[in-house]
Design a protein around this nucleic acid. Structure first.
Lengths: 188, 188
DNA sequence: CCGTTTAACTAACAATTGTTAGTTTTGTAC
DNA sequence: GTACAAAACTAACAATTGTTAGTTAAACGG
């Protein structure tokens, strides 16, 4: 059974996603949890802590994914496929929290914001290095690596919204379709 | 010279993008315009009107782009290329306002929200029809059309954030790189 | 049972919010 | 220069916000 704290975080993720962090107030959150607003403070210290933890939980997930892939002995293209696979899995499992990565981090205070963006940048850098390797080995064409990085990450970052509308698709097939789309493109 | 109303809208777009609609207050907006908060109401009727107009201006831009392409006699693949080209142009010209399309529409009241989403859905439908045509003609492989649509639109919708970091790239080259990335993929 | 901790409640606070009323200044047409 | 409209200002409002204080009820170990 889930701790009250986790229940609060889950509801917060749901509401922050649907309405945005700033537009969600503690009374709404409390009602969703089934409690009065003041009672929330027996389990959390303040509103921003919720956003902070939700975002950081996800950021650490991706940091782990990246460092696992980096320290593996896979080929560059396989590394890329593994990153995509992880991303799809996380999106399916933590749809609400993942959705916050897109825009809600701007509401973090300076310190946690900096920390969050550092992790985000590290992830992007790791991704870029792997893409670069894929080009060097000749597996990928000599496309602008920043464009490739941007297009790939965009697709992955929007995945949660797509998944919300197509929950039926099974994750494995989804992952394969996306990988194929990104790697071989649209043209026959 | 720009009207005061337009100046207010421009600053609103900038602040809404940077901080979010809910996190931006009328006193901040007023200061950015160089005026006291109450004076804004000589030019606008309320805060939400600003968000509404910013979003609707963009939505109508895309609606126009789509209907122009649809009524043209271009080949399906050329139609797609034209849509991408328009999207890049708009992104470069209206970066701030375009960025609001991503997440800030949730703060619209029910009525304008419905209207906005209708236009958005129409655009997506038009896009899907063109992609379907590209597959039927044999120009594109038989990929899941919803995946192709989703991946393409994701890349376009995130473009504003990429452009903000790479303002140096000229739009035409950007458009060509993105088109190539989407259509021929990464693999050599 | 009892004593202690945990977690719920009510009530209220200080701050911030969008907006309005009323007034003064600025600009323009004659 | 006077009259009128446009647009700025000051001051204040009602509502909403996150959070705290103080208190009561539930849960639990001995």
């Amino acid at each position: 059974m889930k701790s009250k704290r986790q229940q609060i975080k889950d509801q917060a993720a749901y509401l922050f996603r649907k309405q945005g962090y700033k537009a969600t107030n503690m009374r709404q959150l409390a009602e969703a949890v089934g409690v009065k607003a003041a009672s929330l403070y027996n389990h959390i210290s303040n509103k921003e802590e919720l956003l902070q933890e939700l975002l950081m939980d996800m950021a650490h997930l991706f940091t782990k994914s990246m460092s696992d892939v980096q320290s593996s002995s896979l080929q560059p293209v396989q590394k890329l496929e593994r990153l995509i696979s992880d991303y799809v899995r996380y999106t399916v499992e933590y749809t609400d929290a993942i959705s916050l990565l897109t825009g809600e981090w701007v509401h973090l205070a300076d310190n946690p914001k900096t920390e969050f963006l550092k992790l985000r940048d590290n992830y992007e850098d790791g991704f870029r290095q792997i893409l670069t390797k894929c080009i060097q080995t000749g597996d990928f064409k000599k496309i602008d690596v920043d464009i490739a990085l941007f297009s790939t990450l965009s697709t992955l970052r929007w995945l949660y919204s797509w998944y919300s509308k197509h929950k039926t698709t099974n994750p494995l097939e989804l992952e394969q379709q996306i990988t194929q789309m990104l790697i071989t493109g649209l043209r026959k």
